[in-house]
């Protein structure tokens, strides 16, 4: 059939292009997570810090990046990053710099991810009882060791449902990077539409691919949660 040929792999089908786009979407989402998690954790620590200014900074960070549209954050990081880098490079040479779309997308999505993740971490922190800290103190553990050996393992378990949710949102938000000329799934689909004039088919297929990605993620999330809860006694 004609429509199937359009989706096939090879020179006259768009299957391989869509697959390339999907691969970039997956890579972008995967690259964003570690960056966003680390940043989110630091922001959560800042919000719990005894220092007033750090707390204010953490709260302002969350308010701003949870309030801004993701699309606007992407534009600000992409164009703003370009200007900032140009200024820095301009100090040393006259070369023009081009911001890598992948990095810009990763930073923008990571910043948004971290703002939400910091709230998840904060909630998880609040669910760890004082007794845990006191017990660690009584054992003579140093604060850094307490964090590493006692708090973080529990934190991971408590934060996982929230973080899993953020991952599913991130997967969808990656589609926004298509506006900064990054060849993700949605942009490749747009190219296919422009050539074939079959928008309904191709955007429909793109939606189904996103659905498939989130279904696969859900399976992975269940497995990770089972692993994280392995030390937990279940009420029978």
């Amino acid at each position: 059939m004609d429509l199937l040929r359009l989706l096939s792999f090879g020179p006259d089908g768009w299957g391989d292009e869509l697959l390339q786009g999907t691969w970039l979407t997956i890579r972008l989402a995967l690259a964003t997570v570690p960056f966003g998690l680390a940043l989110g954790f630091l922001v959560a620590l800042a919000k719990r810090s005894p220092n007033r200014y750090l707390r204010a900074f953490g709260n302002a960070y969350t308010t701003v990046f949870r309030g801004l549209p993701e699309l606007l954050t992407i534009f600000i990081v992409y164009f703003g990053g370009q200007i900032a880098l140009q200024r820095i490079v301009g100090l040393f040479s006259g070369a023009t710099v081009e911001v890598n779309g992948f990095i810009a997308g990763m930073v923008a999505l990571g910043v948004v991810f971290s703002a939400y993740a910091s709230e998840v971490f904060l909630g998880a922190f609040n669910n760890i009882t004082r007794g845990q800290y006191e017990a660690a103190y009584a054992l003579g553990l140093r604060p850094a060791t307490t964090l590493r050996l006692v708090i973080i393992p529990q934190l991971v378990r408590l934060a996982l449902p929230g973080l899993a949710n953020l991952w599913l949102i991130l997967l969808k938000d990656t589609s926004l990077v298509s506006v900064i000329a990054l060849d993700d799934l949605l942009r490749k689909t747009g190219l296919a539409v422009r050539v074939t004039k079959e928008p309904f088919l191709f955007f429909g297929v793109a939606c189904l691919i996103y659905l498939a990605l989130s279904m696969i993620s859900s399976i992975g999330i269940v497995a990770i949660e089972r692993w994280a809860n392995r030390g937990l006694r279940r009420a029978s």
Binding site: L186, V193, K197, P199, F200, F203, C207, L211
Partner: peptide, 23 residues
């Protein structure tokens, strides 16, 4: 619900806006 919660809003907008042109 699964379709609209599982796909990006931008892709949905494209599907409706450009897809409508086909019909």
């Amino acid at each position: 619900m699964y379709f609209f919660r599982g796909t990006p809003l931008l892709a949905q907008v494209f599907l409706v806006y450009y897809g409508a042109g086909q019909f």
